[in-house]
Design a protein around this nucleic acid. Structure first.
Lengths: 345, 345
DNA sequence: AATTGGCACTCAGATCAGGGGAGTGCCAGC
DNA sequence: GCTGGCACTCCCCTGATCTGAGTGCCAATT
C-alpha cells in the first residue's frame, strides 16, 4: 500500500529524473526535497513504489527511474500544470497573431510551440467532414485546362488544376457548374461526397449527361475526398536529434512517423482527453503505433464547430507539467483566434 | 606525382570504404581487387596518395580513408555512373507515372527517389519568376471574404482566401478584375510584381481608385512574391537516423536544414553542374551551409523553359556512382513527363 | 507502528596492464 | 620499379582491481 508520502516521493523522483537525466537515489531526494525524514525512510517508501511497479532500478544497486506506469500516476494525480511565465504568454500571442489564412496560422502555431517547448509540435487541421461546401468555382483556361475550386464555410479552400483532354466550351461549363452546384453546394462535405458518388455511379446509364460533366464531377469527388482526410502540420523534428540520448533505441521510428503522418494522425485522434480537454499518451501506451519510447501530450481546441488537437511529441522522460501547460495555453489562444475570425466575417 | 595505378588504388579505397565502412588497408585491396602487384607496392602508392591529401589515416597504423578531396577526385575523374538495373528503371517509371498536378508529381518524385537510394531526396520547384501569369480569378464569397487565384502558363496555381473587411459589391469586383488583369495577365511573374509594386506606390495619390481595389492588388502582390520564392519538396529525412553512424557529429544540423529549407535551397542553387547537368557538393565544400559532413548530388531537369534540380542529400561517405545514376535517371524521366504534359495541353 | 542509524553487499564504471593483430614504413635484394 | 621481410606503432579486447553510489535489511529508538 503506497502511502501519501510515498506518492510525494514518486513525484520527487519524476521531477529529479526529468531534471538530471540520472537515476535518483534516496539520499539525493533527502537533499533536494524537504521531507523531514531520513534517507532510510525514503528507501522504505521506494521499496513499496517498486512493488507497485511505479519505479524501477536499472541495475541492482543504483538509483530509481520512473516506469511508464509511474509517469502515468504522476500525470494523472501528482502533476500540477506549471503556469507559463509572462514572457512565455507573450511569446505565444506574438507568434500566433498576424495576418494570413488558416494554413498560415497553423504553421505559426507549431513553430511557436516547438520554440516554446523544444519538442516536436503537431497540430491537427480542424475536421472538415462536417463543414459544408459554400462555394464551387470552375475556371476554364486555354488549352482545355481547368481549375476546380471548392470552399467550405470553415474557410478552407482546395484547388486543383487538371489538363483535361476534353474540349470545354462555354455551354459545357455552364452545364457542369449547375450539376456540381446542385450536388454539393450547401451540403456537408460528407453528404456532398455521397451525392457525388451516387451521381457517378448512375451517370453512365444516362446518355444525355455530357462526358465533360462527368469528368469534372470526378475531379470534385477527388477534392472532397481530400477534404475528408484529416491532416497534420508539424515542426521541430530536428529537436529529436538533439534529445537523442533520451531515447534508448534509434529515433528512426519517430522520424518515420513524422514523415508518414498517418500514424500520428491516428494516435492523436485516439487519445482520450480529460474534462479539461487535455490528453496524454505515455511510453508503452504508444507501442501499437511503434512509438513505445515516446510520449504525446495534446489539448483540444475548437474551430468553428469542429474540434481538433494541438500537441507535442517527445521522449517519455519529458517535462509534463510545462508541456501540458504550453499546449493548453496555445490551444486556448488558438480557439480564441478562430472565434474572432468567425465573428469578423 | 600520383601514377595512373595510384588513381586506381584511390578508386579501390573509395569503393571499399563506402562498402565496408572501415578503413581499408593495402592487404585487403590486393585481396579484393586484381592489381597484379603486391601489397608493398600498393603501400607505396598509398603513401603518394597520402602526400596529395587524397586519403588519410585515422591513426598511425590503420587503413586509409578517403578525404573530401579524395572523394572529389573520385567523382570527377574515376567514377562511372553505375547503370540502373531494369528493376530500378521500372520502379522509377511506376513511381512517376500517374495522375495529378505538378505538386503530386514532385511528391511522387521524391518518394520514389528516397525509396530507390535510401537517402534524403530533394526536388526544387521549377522557377516561376520567368513564367507568365496566364489567368487571374477573383471570387467574392459571402461575408466579405474573397479568394484570389493566380495561374501561370507553367501550370502552377496559387490561391489565397482573405477575410477583407471591405464590402465588395459587383461593381467593385469588376473594377478590381480589370485593374489586376491589366497589371499582370500576360506578363512574367517578375515583371508583373514590378508593375504591381508601382501601382501600389502611386495608388495613394490617385483619389479615384477605390480602397477595395488597392486591398486586392496588395493580396496579388503577396501571391506573386510567393511565386517568386523557390521551394523544395523533400522526403526520406528519417533515413538520416538510420545512417547516423555515418556522421561523426550529430544529425541535428541536417534535420534543421531540412526543416528550414532555405539553406538547402541556396545550396542546391549554387552548385555547379557539369556538361551532363550533374552536380556534386562534397563534405567540407558544404561547410558554409553548416553541412560539412554531408554531400549532395543533383541533376538538372527541364520544366517548360525554366530548369530546376532534383537531388540527394546524404553522408559524405555515400555511393556516388549509384546515386548520381539515380538522380540522372529520375531527372530525365521527369523532364520527359513535363514535356508530355506540355504537349498534351 | 513508524522511523532511524548502521552495516554488509552489489554492481556499474573508471583505471590499468598485458597481449593480439592489423597495418604501416623502410630497406635490401631482385 | 617491384617484392618479401621485418621492426614498429597503436587500436582494441580482455581481465583484474578499485571505488563509490546506492540498496536491503535489521536491531534499536521514539
Amino acid at each position: 500500500m503506497v502511502t501519501d508520502r510515498g506518492l510525494q516521493v514518486l513525484r520527487a523522483i519524476v521531477q529529479d529524473y526529468v531534471d538530471t537525466h540520472e537515476p535518483v537515489g534516496s539520499k539525493s531526494i533527502v537533499e533536494r526535497h524537504s521531507f523531514g525524514v531520513s534517507a532510510a525512510t525514503i528507501r522504505n517508501d521506494m521499496a513499496l513504489l517498486e512493488d507497485e511497479e511505479l519505479i524501477a532500478a536499472p541495475h541492482t544497486s543504483s538509483g530509481r527511474v520512473p516506469t511508464d506506469k509511474g509517469y502515468r500516476v504522476f500525470v494523472d494525480h501528482l502533476a500540477e500544470l506549471r503556469p507559463l511565465s509572462p514572457a512565455q504568454r507573450h511569446a505565444i500571442t506574438s507568434f500566433l497573431d498576424g495576418p494570413g489564412d488558416l494554413d498560415d496560422l497553423l504553421v505559426r502555431t507549431v513553430r511557436g510551440l516547438t520554440h516554446l517547448t523544444g519538442q516536436v509540435a503537431i497540430v491537427q487541421y480542424p475536421s472538415f467532414a462536417r463543414a459544408s461546401v459554400s462555394h464551387v468555382e470552375l475556371v476554364a483556361l486555354e488549352g482545355g485546362r481547368l481549375i476546380v475550386i471548392l470552399v467550405t464555410d470553415t474557410g478552407r479552400v482546395s484547388q486543383r488544376l487538371v489538363a483535361s483532354r476534353i474540349e470545354l466550351d462555354e455551354v459545357a461549363m455552364v452545364r457542369a457548374r449547375s450539376v456540381v452546384g446542385d450536388l454539393i453546394v450547401g451540403r456537408s462535405v460528407r453528404e456532398g461526397a455521397q451525392r457525388v458518388d451516387e451521381f457517378l455511379s448512375t451517370a453512365s446509364d444516362e446518355p444525355d449527361i455530357p462526358a465533360a460533366t462527368v469528368a469534372i464531377v470526378r475531379i470534385v469527388a477527388e477534392e472532397l475526398e481530400e477534404f475528408r482526410q484529416d491532416r497534420l502540420v508539424m515542426a521541430g523534428a530536428a529537436n529529436l536529434a538533439r534529445r537523442e540520448s533520451d531515447f534508448r533505441g534509434s529515433i528512426y521510428p519517430l522520424l518515420e512517423a513524422i514523415e508518414e503522418q498517418v500514424t500520428l494522425l491516428r494516435l492523436m485522434s485516439e487519445m482520450v482527453a480529460d474534462e479539461q480537454g487535455l490528453a496524454t499518451s505515455i511510453g508503452r501506451e504508444n507501442e501499437p503505433f511503434g512509438l513505445g519510447e515516446a510520449s504525446v501530450v495534446a489539448s483540444d481546441y475548437d474551430a468553428t464547430g469542429s474540434h481538433a488537437r494541438v500537441g507535442l511529441l517527445g521522449p517519455t522522460r519529458m517535462d509534463y507539467p510545462s508541456n501540458l501547460a504550453a499546449v493548453r495555453a496555445v490551444a486556448r489562444y488558438l480557439t480564441r483566434m478562430l472565434e474572432d475570425d468567425e465573428n469578423a466575417r
